[in-house]
Simulated assay, not measured.
Amino acid sequence: MSTAGSAKSVLKTGVKRLLGRAGFDIVRSTNSRGGVDDFIPFEATMRAARAAGLSVGDYVDEVMNGTPGATQSTIDELRALGVFAANPGTVLEIGPGSGRYLEKTLKECSPDRYEIYETARPWADHLVDTYKVVARPTEGSSLAPTPDASIDLVQAHKVFNTVTFLCASRYYFEMARVTRPGGRIIFDVMTENCLDPATMRTWATKGGAGHGSYPATMPRQTCVDLFATLGCSLEAGFLAPMGVASTEVLVFKKSA
Rank of each mutant, 00 (worst) to 15 (best):
V83D: 05
T229N: 13
V189E: 06
E174N: 07
A216G: 08
A86W: 10
R47Q: 13
L226H: 08
D37W: 06
L19G: 13
G5M: 12
P111E: 13
V15L: 15
D225W: 07
S169F: 11
D148Y: 07
T222P: 01
Y114H: 02
F187Y: 15
K104R: 15
Q155L: 14
R50T: 14
R184M: 09
L226M: 12
A198L: 13
L81Y: 08
V159G: 02
S6P: 03
V10P: 00
P122N: 12
C167H: 09
T67P: 04
L230Q: 10
M175T: 00
A52G: 03
A240Q: 06
P68L: 10
M46V: 15
A52S: 13
K132C: 06
K104Y: 04
V178N: 06
T217C: 05
L102Q: 02
G183P: 12
Y59R: 02
F173I: 11
P215E: 00
F24I: 05
S213L: 02
R17K: 14
C223Y: 01
L92H: 06
A48S: 15
G66A: 05
T71D: 06
T30R: 11
E115D: 14
S9D: 13
D58P: 03
R220P: 01
T202R: 15
G237R: 14
T119K: 13
P219W: 03
A236N: 09
V244Y: 00
R184F: 03
L127H: 05
Y172E: 01
G237E: 15
L166T: 07
A49D: 03
E174D: 12
A168H: 00
E235P: 02
M200Q: 14
D125Q: 14
R184T: 04
T71Q: 04
A168C: 01
G212H: 04
W123A: 00
S169C: 04
L102H: 05
E43F: 11
R177I: 06
L102V: 05
T3H: 10
R33T: 09
T162Q: 08
G5Q: 13
C223E: 06
T162K: 05
H211C: 14
M200G: 07
D225N: 11
H211W: 11
P137L: 10
L106W: 11
K12W: 15
T146V: 11
R79L: 02
I75L: 03
V63S: 05
P41S: 10
T199Y: 03
L106C: 05
S150G: 09
P215Q: 01
M190P: 02
E192Q: 15
P147C: 02
D61A: 04
S73F: 09
T13P: 06
I40G: 00
A216I: 02
K107M: 13
N65P: 01
K254W: 01
F165A: 05
D112Y: 12
R50H: 11
T205N: 11
